[in-house]
Nucleic acid binder design. Structure first.
Length: 345
DNA sequence: TATGCGTGGTA
DNA sequence: TTACCAAGCAT
C-alpha cells in the first residue's frame, strides 16, 4: 500500500472515479483487454454515451459500431442489455450491493467486486489475472488458476488478504503491482518490496507460477467472402448464432475447413449464391488475409467482381452503398480488407 | 464444467 | 513465426 501511494500508481481515465456507470463501463471494456487498448474506447463511449440513459436509448448498431475492433463482442451485447435494464427497469439507479451487481448480465465475480469496491467502498476482493499471479507467486501456490478449485482457493485467499479499511484502494494497488512489478514475463523482482517474504522468489520458481493448463491447438478455417458490386452496392448481413463475430456484419460467406480451388469455390457459389457470376477467374479480384484469434486461425479470401443484375438471395441481405456500410460494425479482417483493397475507390 | 469468445503487444 | 497473455464471462 505504501508502494502504491509512493508514485507507483498508473494514471488512467477511470481511476478514482465514483460514478458506478463509468466504473461499470470501464470494467466491461477492460475484461481480457489491455489498458492501453481499452483507453480510447472508454473515452469515445463516454463522449457518445455520457450516462446510462443515453446508452440505453442508442440503437444496437450505434453501440456495436463504437465497440468495433475491440473484440469479444458478447461483452457489447451484454452492455446494451444491462444499460436498458438499468435505465428502464431501475430508473437509472445502479445496484449498490455485491450480490445485486453480480446479477447484471456481463458482470461476473471480478467485475462485481471491482464495482462494489471502487464505487461503494464495499469489502470485496477482486481476483483478476494480476491477483492470481501475485498471490500464486507470493505464497508459492501451484493449484492451476483456470480450474474451479484454483478459482475457489485464490478467491478465498484474496478475500482474507483484503484491507477492509480501504478495499477499493487495496484492489487498485494489487492490480497495479501485478501489472508493473510482478509481471507475467520478466518480473522486476529486484525492485520488489515483497521479495524478502516471497515464496516463489526464495524457491526460484517465479517463472513457473501461476500454473495454467496448456492451451489447446487452434482450429483452422477458410472464409470465402463474396464481394459482388451491383449498382454501386454490395450485399451484407448480420452474423447470428453462437459463432465468432456474432452481431457483426459480413458479405456472403462460404466456409471451408480447407483451402478451395477456384473451380470448387465456383461450384459452391453457383449452389449457394446463384448469380450471373463472371465465367472465368479473370473476372474476379482475389485477395487473402489471415487473422489469428485466441482460439482459431481464419484465412479470409475476398473475391470481388461486378454484377450486371442483382441476384435474388435471402432477404437477410441488405444491398448497401459506402455510406451505409460505414455505419455498420464489421470484423477487423473485413475492415482491413476494405482499407487495403485497391478496388475500394 | 470445459469450451469458446477478438484483438494487439511482446519475447 | 509462434506462443503467451491481457482489469473474464456465458453457456
Amino acid at each position: 500500500m505504501i508502494w502504491h501511494r509512493d508514485s507507483n500508481r498508473r494514471e488512467m481515465p477511470w481511476k478514482g472515479e465514483k460514478d458506478p456507470y463509468r466504473i461499470w463501463l470501464s470494467e466491461i471494456i477492460l475484461q481480457q483487454t489491455r489498458v492501453e487498448q481499452g483507453w480510447g474506447y472508454y473515452e469515445r463511449f463516454l463522449k457518445k454515451f455520457p450516462d446510462v440513459r443515453k446508452l440505453a436509448r442508442a440503437s444496437d448498431q450505434a453501440v456495436l459500431k463504437c465497440w468495433e475492433g475491440l473484440g469479444y463482442y458478447t461483452r457489447c451485447r451484454n452492455l446494451i442489455h444491462t444499460a436498458r435494464h438499468l435505465a428502464f427497469d431501475r430508473q437509472g439507479v445502479f445496484p449498490n450491493t455485491y450480490e445485486e451487481i453480480l446479477q447484471l448480465k456481463g458482470v461476473g465475480p471480478y467485475t462485481a467486486a471491482a464495482i462494489a469496491s471502487f464505487a461503494f467502498d464495499l469489502p470485496h476482493a477482486v481476483v483478476d489475472g494480476n491477483v492470481f499471479r501475485v498471490l500464486a507467486r507470493y505464497h508459492g501456490i501451484r493449484t492451476p488458476i483456470d480450474k474451479p478449485e484454483g478459482k475457489k482457493q485464490f478467491t478465498a485467499l484474496a478475500q482474507r488478504s483484503l484491507d477492509l479499511s480501504q478495499p477499493g484502494n487495496y484492489n487498485q494497488a494489487l492490480m497495479d503491482f501485478g501489472a508493473t512489478v510482478c509481471k507475467p514475463q520478466a518480473p522486476a523482482c529486484t525492485m520488489c518490496p515483497l521479495r524478502s517474504t516471497c515464496v516463489a522468489y526464495r524457491d526460484k520458481t517465479i517463472e513457473t507460477l501461476p500454473v495454467k493448463s496448456p492451451a489447446k491447438s487452434k482450429r483452422i478455417r477458410w472464409f470465402y467472402y463474396l464481394l459482388p458490386t451491383w449498382n454501386g452496392k454490395i450485399p451484407v448481413r448480420q452474423r447470428t448464432g453462437r459463432d465468432v463475430w456474432t452481431g457483426l456484419w459480413e458479405p456472403p460467406l462460404l466456409e471451408s475447413a480447407k483451402p478451395l480451388s477456384f473451380k470448387m469455390l465456383r461450384q459452391k457459389m453457383d449452389q449457394v449464391f446463384p448469380a450471373h457470376w463472371p465465367a472465368t477467374q479473370k473476372g474476379f479480384e482475389w485477395l487473402t488475409h489471415k487473422q489469428v484469434l485466441s482460439h482459431q486461425t481464419i484465412h479470409g479470401c475476398f473475391v470481388e467482381c461486378r454484377l450486371g443484375r442483382r441476384p435474388d438471395w435471402s432477404t437477410d441481405f441488405q444491398w448497401v452503398n459506402h455510406r451505409q456500410l460505414s455505419r455498420l460494425p464489421f470484423p477487423k479482417m473485413i475492415l482491413d480488407h476494405w482499407k487495403h483493397s485497391p478496388s475500394n475507390r
